[in-house]
Nucleic acid binder design. Sequence first.
DNA 1: GATATCTAATTGCATATGCAAATAGCAAGT
DNA 2: ACTTGCTATTTGCATATGCAATTAGATATC
Lengths: 249, 249
Amino acid sequence: MTETRLDAVKLDGAGPVYDQIRRAIRDLVVSGEWPPGTSVPPEHALMEQLGASRMTVHRALVQLAREGLIVRRRRSGTVVATPPASHAMLDILSIPEEVRQLGQAYAYEVLARTDGRPSPEVAELFGLKRSDKVAHLIVLHRADGKPHVLEERVIHAAGVNGLADEDFAETPPGDWLLQHSLWSQAEHAISAIGAGEEQAALLEIAEGEPCLLVERRTWNQSQPVTAVRLLYPGFRHRFVGRFGPYGAA
Amino acid sequence: MTETRLDAVKLDGAGPVYDQIRRAIRDLVVSGEWPPGTSVPPEHALMEQLGASRMTVHRALVQLAREGLIVRRRRSGTVVATPPASHAMLDILSIPEEVRQLGQAYAYEVLARTDGRPSPEVAELFGLKRSDKVAHLIVLHRADGKPHVLEERVIHAAGVNGLADEDFAETPPGDWLLQHSLWSQAEHAISAIGAGEEQAALLEIAEGEPCLLVERRTWNQSQPVTAVRLLYPGFRHRFVGRFGPYGAA
DNA sequence: GATATCTAATTGCATATGCAAATAGCAAGT
DNA sequence: ACTTGCTATTTGCATATGCAATTAGATATC
């Protein structure tokens, strides 16, 4: 339960007051300045600090709660929520979790790791300078001992603390990053591709076998954090999502 | 602009009043009883009808507006929104639109149509009785003259009006359905698969070439509406989505 | 020490009121 | 016809007020 700097909440005079309050607090949350667990000042305090009525403050907080950024409980007060680990549509943010939900035993091996400058392709793909430092990893995830997905990942060292000291012996890089970095934007791309020679060997499938390729890039405040390519044997995987016409269910 | 039955809005006494109002109106919208374009009674009318204060009615309507079910404008009033044609993550609800957004010329051919009973596999997949009537269609969509995606579709006749009289000469079945049916639930599945012999011939690719298979099933109030399998040549397509940790961007 | 009870902090909900902003529709004037 | 301006309707926003529900923490009791 971190200390909350009350005067960190500042209005910008643009638009409705309730929305100024909402944005001010949202910014503190998504910037990481108020990390998950931080307690948000009670309505009365904000009301005095900002010179708004309680109902106006209330409206802002209720909306933030509906958006899932904060959690409110009577008497205990309001705290910053821990962001949902997975995303509605097609999520695979945590591969161990994904495998275990299938009721299979999870294991992984780090097949290769190189720290250094990004290759030209990687730099291009990611909008990095050649002088930036990155870690490049290849990881094979297994379910019940059988190859499940092949992960190739680039991590931007400047965006993540403690990267050099981590050997990913205990935790695979994807999960480790979830705990050691923030992200504000992500992009997914899904396509189908035939397995290359090396990839096929690692996944123990035939060369050219159709695979699902999931590419994900994440940024924090427009600074790159990580990019990953996940190669799933196609016949064994499908991604499913459910929703209604007005949004995810 | 349909007539609005004011007394259709009824409270159920469960939970907060503003939420009862919200749910009551939401139900009228999603059930199709108030189709898109219907004008919602003004706050004053609802206020009197329901015996709630204007602010309470307001709160319900504001929330529905934020959820995208209704559109509100000062003086003009409130109308039921036309549901968004495409969904944030991976949408391809309208293939013509998708192709045109790529700046390519769109065309399609209905390769086959059979009306009758569902095959056992289709019935299984869809939870239909063998006695239900369905239409089975195979459609090839082209972009700039080249095969773009192969569509295989089953439509449940009982769920859709006017199906028998439609020959899909003007509008491909996906788009036609969007206009002639409602859906309340959809399920997407994405996988990778090698093109079969016939499929490869139609798409003008090599047999076994990796393809993205998008399967979508839609229901209205738990009654099946349609199921479709879209086969995209993998090297030519990728589906992209962007979002933040707290939801779609 | 354990347990029951009270108190006060905090959020949740609803109302009443007033004013601001946008604008559809009408009226008047040219 | 076309423009101009007025007016009434409708939504948007903020405030002040009061009470209800929940419950952490203090207090009293056994």
